[in-house]
Amino acid sequence: MADEWKASAAADGDEKSWRLLEKTLLAGVQEQRRSRRWGIFFKLLTFIYIFAALALFSPMLAMKKGATTGSHTALIEVRGMIADQEAASADNIVSSLRAAFEDANTKGVILRINSPGGSPVQSGYIYDEIRRLRAEYPAIKLYAVITDLGASGAYYIASAADQIYADKASLVGSIGVTAATFGFVGVMEKLGVDRRVYTSGEHKAFLDPFQPQKAEETEFWQGVLKTTHQQFIASVKQGRGERLKDAEHPELFSGLVWSGEQALPLGLIDALGNTSYVAREVIGEKELVDFTVQESPFDRFAKTIGASMAERIALWMGFQGAVLR
């Protein structure tokens, strides 16, 4: 009888222990869920606050930039690569130019350039628009001011200006066209890898770096580059006119660059000077108003965090889904 009682008591103790353990585990799970919900709530609150602040300041910045109340010199920045979807894209620069010229208080326009160049198409769009606006608004002069670098497509744009200024140490020129790639044929042969390309045109894959070059295709591509180079040269000659000393210096179109001091006697620039000097002494209006079209803070924030960071944030907030790569 005593043995049965002991066994029953032991069973009751084990059951109570399991119930206590179960309650403890459930309490832990509930606490984790509660913590996760609060975590998601505060993260959502943080991002709502950030986006609200960006939405609030974006229109304020837009109102401030380009807002004028009196006579001024309009300033437009050309920074970095000249390419589609970049800060110095044709869309952005052309929009800035139009806004500057259309402002009744604009006394002159300065295009401040610090760029290695970029797309000949984007540069050509900007060049053509500068010449169109100069013809439409003959009373408003446009001056290009090269700071550190005004090369290739950037000089293409500058040559459309009424005058070009630069610092004595600025790098100017690089009137040429380049296209570069790599050849991996030898590496593939060493690795024993075969390249299989299926096309419906004889030369459809003529720039494929994994196939040997063909003489006729190389010659064809060189012709494309030469044609683009000739277009570049013609535009620079049209913009600079007799100021350009190309007859005495045919090397101007070889792709070389010169310092501002060297560029002056070659006719690549008109004088040495910076933005303040041109606004004050040339245009006669030292008040500068920036008309540069810029990305909104939200766009810059989105680009900064990038796709991978956005994915990580989504995971932090408890969201998961398909990702296309």
Rank of each mutant, 00 (worst) to 15 (best):
K214Q: 09
H203W: 13
F298P: 06
E295A: 15
F253Y: 09
G173I: 04
G118T: 07
E311C: 06
E202R: 13
A67D: 08
G153S: 03
A234H: 02
L324H: 12
P116W: 10
T181Q: 03
I313V: 11
P265D: 00
A180M: 11
D84I: 14
K190H: 11
L44N: 14
G39E: 11
P212K: 08
V109H: 11
V185F: 02
A154C: 05
A271K: 12
N114D: 15
E4D: 13
I126R: 02
I110L: 03
I146E: 00
V78E: 01
I110F: 05
T68Q: 03
F47C: 02
A307W: 09
L324D: 13
I283W: 00
I175G: 02
G70M: 08
K226T: 08
I283F: 02
T181M: 03
Q262T: 11
Q231H: 10
G176S: 13
G255I: 04
R195W: 08
G118K: 03
E129R: 09
D162H: 05
T218F: 05
E129T: 10
S235E: 08
T292A: 13
S58I: 07
E261V: 01
T24K: 15
F51S: 05
F41Q: 04
K16M: 12
E102V: 11
L244C: 06
E129F: 03
G39V: 04
K168G: 01
F182D: 06
I93S: 02
G150Y: 00
F291I: 10
I113R: 01
R33H: 14
A27K: 15
V78S: 01
D270H: 04
P212W: 05
V172Y: 03
G192A: 06
E136M: 08
A279V: 05
V172R: 02
I175L: 13
L97V: 13
A52R: 01
A322S: 13
I113V: 15
I175E: 00
I82G: 04
D167N: 09
G150K: 00
V282A: 12
D270T: 01
A169P: 01
A322Y: 14
K237C: 02
Y156A: 01
P265W: 02
A263V: 10
D299H: 13
G201Y: 06
Q163C: 02
L225I: 08
N92A: 15
T178I: 11
S296M: 03
Y137M: 03
I93E: 05
G306Q: 00
K6S: 13
V78R: 06
A263M: 07
F253P: 01
I130M: 07
F57P: 00
Y143T: 02
V278R: 01
L149D: 08
Q230T: 07
R240I: 08
I76A: 05
I110A: 01
V78C: 03
I76R: 04
S235A: 09
R131T: 12
S235F: 06
Y155Q: 12
F298C: 10
L149F: 14
Y125A: 12
F301R: 03
G223P: 01
L266Q: 00
D167V: 00
E251R: 10
E311Q: 12
K204L: 11
L111R: 01
K107N: 14
A9D: 07
Y277L: 12
Q231M: 06
A87K: 14
L97E: 07
S200W: 09
A67R: 13
